[in-house]
Write a protein that binds this DNA or RNA. Structure first.
Lengths: 353, 353
DNA sequence: CTAGGCAGCCAAAACGATTTGGGCCAGGTT
DNA sequence: AACCTGGCCCAAATCGTTTTGGCTGCCTAG
């Protein structure tokens, strides 16, 4: 068996070798048309012997589909790109999305925001996009809409009522989860609960803040709301803590803090510890997204686990359905996100020192 | 400006609209051929008005290049895929690789091992592969070699001398770093140093073990070597610790442990703590790969930071160079990986013994 | 005045698959 | 005997680019 010319075999080579037309070869593999079993067998063995693999790109050209979807990682262009995946949420999301994509027969491409100047052309090769946490007036959303490229969002596009939009949406349950976190803090004894949000104008930050405001009014609790840039990491949390502790807010020093970003929660814990405040005795903390580091910190920190794996799975399935013009999958309305109670908000048990 | 037929404009539409041939349009954008500046201008505005974007797939078909490279995530098929990215190393690697790819004008695709049964065809669409930590007789390596698909490995292909292979290799410095970790443990006072490796047969595990053996002989220290499956996570570390502490090894109970996998190190720390052994006073610990959780654990754990971001960057650059038939980039021989000393191996302050 | 060169443009042939619209033949119906 | 019906197969068109190999004129050197 002489290695045929070094280039990889095409459908034509297979056809010649099997003594049939390319049409027949194509039909054999695609299942279209009618091909006698005997012929099929001949084609298959010929293909196998030649080591034939259909050229995905040529298929893509005809079908206008490549079998690749893109996950947009907006922070990719940020200052310290190597830290991108420090955000556990996104890392978990990406991992689960890759797995789910594979299950749908799709590849998952990580791309930076393609609206940016450095937009790699390759990004546009994908059949569809998953946009997590779109922000107000998101240029990416606008671009995809204009270009007619299918996409789904995880979290609402702020300012766009989901009913009026036909963009598939994966619900991140920001309302329910905010209430869940606040109620939990309340039940664990906190009476002056502050909220620390990030500064990205996405559903998570915006909705949490508004729900918090309403919740505080309901509890007749003067709201204490601080914003810290996500990018500041721990330091952002530390500064937020300083603001809350030093700034003589109406309500006085908080005894409970709900920090939406996990690294902020860590920074807050650090600052509280420095000041000799005990967690959870003096101040209870809940983080709004889960991370490995919350599980291993000195005082473990309670958190809202958004279940990025499940969200990713749903996003991929929704996108795959849309790409195939199938109706969107119905995930029922069972809650997804959950509260993980750890030391930072655990009521003391009777016998503890 | 009536929206032309809903399908996206092709190069032909642009040509017609600008009153030139498709060749001229192509040349205008590619810079090939000769096109009068005035004509170029006409073409460009026509393209812009139509909202024309070249079809990446069609370009790919001609050029046999799509501008996408694949990163193989072997653990993707594992039992708990959502935990894939718990392995900080890979998460960081993927993030940095995505960024570096973008800089090279390439997209990064996450694919599971394409040798598996579920191999998504899309995986094969990529121009090249990055294989991290290939194992002995790696089927993926074999497949890529046979198919003539370009790839680079991060870490040697065990059993294949790098000089004899023309597969670009990113050096993970397993020899130097193992020695670095062991010397550090020694200097911090440990005299009976055990090694806990994973069970994957990759360079990191294999080379570390062999270097450890030699190092132990040199120090006239009876070696204590335990293997625990990476997949067991903390539990694997716990079991390894049990083996080391209970099994009456020749050398007795170790006072220093080098655990290659970060989660193993965490498990070891937990088991030691349970038994009332103090870290680092009774036992010093160093982990062989860095992770966020080592930085925040009760007793922070020293680690070897492989600098996955830098490794990823190099891998991408090497692959990009190979794809362009450029000579491989020369990264000099400055060391990359480093030791991060934390509490688990910090020598006691002066007043201690 | 002519040959050659060059700038500017184009038609047509790839690239590797899928799909369309027959053709041919055997067997069953009128 | 003529007609229809399927089963099986094929040639050619198609997808949207890039590249090859001309074809025009115009300019300049001889």
């Amino acid at each position: 068996m002489p290695p045929p010319p070094s280039r990889r075999p095409t459908i034509r080579d297979v056809a010649r070798s099997a003594g049939v037309s390319v049409t027949t070869v194509s039909h054999t593999f695609s299942g279209n048309g009618k091909v006698a079993p005997a012929t099929q067998q001949r084609v298959r063995t010929a293909a196998h012997d030649l080591g034939y693999r259909p050229d995905v790109i040529a298929q893509g050209l005809r079908s206008n589909r490549l079998g690749v979807i893109a996950l947009v990682a907006r922070q990719l262009d940020a200052l310290r790109p190597e830290l991108l995946f420090d955000v556990d949420y996104f890392a978990r999301f990406a991992g689960a999305a890759a797995v789910a994509s594979l299950a749908e027969g799709l590849g998952l491409m990580l791309v930076s925001d393609p609206t940016g100047p450095r937009a790699a052309g390759a990004a546009l090769a994908s059949d569809g996009f998953i946009v997590t946490e779109p922000v107000v007036d998101d240029p990416l959303v606008e671009m995809l809409t204009n270009a007619g490229i299918p996409f789904v969002t995880v979290g609402e596009i702020p300012g766009v009522a989901p009913e009026t939009s036909d963009v598939p949406l994966v619900d991140i349950e920001s309302g329910r989860l905010t209430t869940l976190a606040l109620d939990h803090l309340w039940e664990s004894g906190a009476r002056r609960i502050a909220l620390v949000t990030g500064t990205d104008r996405n559903e998570w930050n915006l909705r949490s803040a508004s729900v918090y405001q309403r919740w505080a009014r309901f509890r007749r609790m003067p709201p204490a709301l601080v914003h810290a840039p996500e990018a500041l990491d721990d330091e952002g949390g530390r500064r937020a803590a300083i603001t809350l502790l030093d700034g003589s807010d109406a309500g006085g020093v908080p005894d409970g803090i709900y920090a939406l970003t996990s690294n902020h929660a860590l920074g807050i814990l650090a600052e509280l510890t420095v000041r000799g405040l005990r967690v959870p005795d003096d101040v209870r903390i809940v983080a709004g997204s889960d991370a490995e580091s919350l599980r291993t910190s000195q005082t473990t920190i309670s958190s809202i686990d958004l279940r990025p794996d499940e969200l990713a799975r749903r996003a991929v399935q929704a996108l795959a359905a849309r790409l195939d013009d199938r109706p969107p999958p119905d995930h029922g309305d069972a809650p997804v996100g959950r509260l993980l109670v750890r030391a930072s908000s655990r009521p003391r048990s009777p016998d503890q020192r």
